[in-house]
């Protein structure tokens, strides 16, 4: 089972963000989406969990078309999807332990004991043992991201979506997060989409890399293919040369 976005169009008022965005992520695969800020990476990712609905086009997750899906059915799908938000989006009013356990509460057969056990496991995985009773405001940016990751994997999802997991982090924490992404992928065999504008991370974690430009996937290929790509837009982005991006149509 996989994630498919087909010819997705999305506008906010007069701001046409996605203009025929298509993406296919195969089972067990990790795809990185790169592109400049404000090009619609987060908007595209939010379509995968039904946080946004396409104006046109289709979104398929786990073999189900999300269009016209009742909330109950959508929620069933969401239980198999972990979403790591750009700024962690931890709930301020809950402790780290409660944050990580919140998704588990939705599982009917979950006991309090099993829940506590699973929370401890997840916090250990992201190396946040001992932070159970802290509040998000008491954590650093990198720790928050790790807690957000722990929350996303707590329910053992089959899909993991990361929105800029390494943006704004120091090089050491970046490496830690990259390793975590690879570790969860190996251990949980999850299908993964990573949004990033850090090419190093993309090369490291992704099986395939797609570049979004002007609302569509401009180029999609393996890290080697991306490195060898001669499209001035792709070169402009990975080499950090805006003049190449502007010259291209």
């Amino acid at each position: 089972m996989s994630i498919v976005l087909q010819d997705v169009h999305k506008a906010f008022g007069s701001n046409q963000v996605l203009r025929g965005f298509s993406l296919e992520v195969h089972e067990g695969e990790t795809v990185a989406i790169v592109g400049q800020s404000g090009t619609g990476k987060s908007v595209a990712l939010k379509h995968v969990v039904g946080l946004l609905k396409p104006d046109r086009g289709e979104v398929w997750v786990d073999g189900v078309n999300l269009g016209q899906l009742a909330v109950e059915r959508l929620n069933e799908i969401r239980r198999h999807v972990g979403y790591v938000f750009q700024f962690a989006a931890l709930f301020d009013s809950l402790t780290i332990e409660e944050n990580v356990g919140l998704g588990l509460r939705r599982i009917p057969e979950m006991t309090e004991k099993a829940m506590a056990e699973r929370v401890r496991e997840c916090l250990a995985l992201v190396e946040l043992e001992g932070y159970e009773s802290r509040f998000p405001a008491e954590l650093s940016g990198g720790q928050k991201k790790r807690a957000g990751l722990a929350r996303a994997i707590a329910t053992q999802p089959r899909y993991l979506l990361y929105d800029e997991p390494t943006t704004g982090l120091d090089p050491v924490t970046t490496t830690v997060i990259n390793r975590l992404i690879m570790k969860t992928r190996e251990e949980l065999k999850v299908t993964t989409v990573v949004i990033t504008h850090d090419m190093e991370s993309a090369y490291l974690v992704a099986d395939r890399i797609g570049m979004i430009h002007e609302g569509v996937i401009r180029f999609m290929g393996t890290p080697e293919e991306v490195r060898a790509c001669s499209d001035p837009v792709v070169r402009g982005f990975i080499e950090g040369k805006p003049e190449l991006l502007e010259g291209a149509g």
Partner: peptide
């Protein structure tokens, strides 16, 4: 801060 989005992705209304 996307906390409401996060709630929705965790299947909460």
């Amino acid at each position: 801060t996307e906390q409401i989005d996060a709630l929705e992705t965790m299947a909460y209304d």
